[in-house]
Design a protein around this nucleic acid. Structure first.
Lengths: 209, 209
DNA sequence: TGTACATCAGTGAACGCGCGTTCACTGATGTAC
DNA sequence: TGTACATCAGTGAACGCGCGTTCACTGATGTAC
């Protein structure tokens, strides 16, 4: 049937416990928050003994990293989708921001784990690095498409960093109740995001404004 | 000597254990990070038994809130100082941002506790509320002084929110190693902050730029 | 001023808990002949 | 195809740990007379 069995662990007892553990971790995370994300809780959720995960992850940290890694992939996919659907580079910048903040709002605990594990390593993951086509590069390339001078690399990097920080800041703030009246005044959460991005110079003013 | 003794608990055994516990918490926080901040560790650091804090705080959460409260006061003071020293409203906006990010960089664990306890309550503390003269109001008033239309309250609030989010985002990002080369290229960490704020529209361009 | 009493800040031992991790094991799966 | 063996994913009991919190207590301080 299959030529390779080295890369295919799926036929063992459980099927694919590694995968199942990451999924279980996501469920624990969204149901009970980051503080409830223990190895034992994940094993429990996956229906295996507390020792089982050690056949797939060196320790708890390695499981968390796997969860975070998946999170960055999901974020990357959300940004790619937003960029593909935008009708112009200027609009794409704004839509990347909205997609970013919506991702964080829809997966708050996962988003937290992503940055917490990065902070522990003092390093953002390779997935969003400057070389390659990670999330960071999508933002940078969009800024260039929208007219930034690609030769002024320092300026481009600063602009990309500014955009990323703005998105991250809004993502973290958006959950506080203080902003409920602003969301209402703007006519919805996404509209609030867009309005804030306008003030950050990251969104075109709507026509006739 | 003293008429009131109700408001003055300072003459009891320890002197002022409440104060001492908050100070001990700050020391634990900066030495070992937020995850090490347990009630027992704080009591240990203060040199008292694990039960002693319960005479001053209902539970661990109340101690954390007191630590966070103090943090917001310190942040407020840092912003007030930055604003007072600025030579123009436009410069004040930029200097508020720099002061904010520097505060977070100099007190990373405290900064984290401030936002974590706020998130648990789903509410930022009263200290930075819209009414009064908390940190939020300092930013808002400075924006008005710099020329924003005070009658367009929605716009002002959005602009203040945008500024706050930008600062928070940069504060959280500034610790990552990825940005080391940008700090170097800008000639220093503070210069990096200023450059990013320029891209967020929060800092005046230096003359001749 | 001196004494009896009330107050209450701090002690130290104990509780039950969930955690990360280790260990010897078992039993299903895959492989060689 | 059938059998013997090796592999290794998962078990379940146990470990030591630090945690938040409670409890009966003790002893210093403040107060009333």
């Amino acid at each position: 049937m299959r030529e390779s069995q080295a890369a295919d662990a799926r036929r063992y007892h459980h099927g694919d416990l590694r995968r199942a553990l990451i999924d279980a971790a996501s469920r624990v995370l969204e149901a009970e928050g980051p503080s409830a994300l223990s190895l034992r809780a994940v094993a429990r959720e996956a229906g295996v003994s507390p020792a089982a995960p050690y056949h797939h992850f060196k320790d708890k940290g390695e499981l968390l990293e796997a969860v975070a890694h998946e999170g960055w992939d999901l974020l990357d996919a959300a940004l790619a989708k937003a960029k593909a659907e935008a009708s112009s580079p200027a609009q794409a910048i704004s839509e990347l921001g909205v997609a970013y903040v919506c991702f964080a709002r829809n997966n708050p605990a996962l988003y937290r784990v992503m940055y917490d594990t990065a902070r522990d390593r003092e390093d953002l993951p390779d997935q969003m690095k400057i070389e390659g086509d990670g999330a960071y590069c999508k933002v940078r390339d969009t800024l260039i498409e929208a007219g930034a001078d690609p030769k002024d690399t320092l300026d481009i990097e600063l602009a990309t960093t500014a955009a990323w920080c703005s998105g991250h800041g809004l993502a973290e703030m958006a959950g506080f109740k203080q902003f409920a009246h602003l969301k209402e005044a703007c006519g919805g959460e996404v509209e609030f995001f867009r309005a804030v991005f306008q003030h950050m110079g990251l969104a075109p003013r709507p026509p006739g404004d």
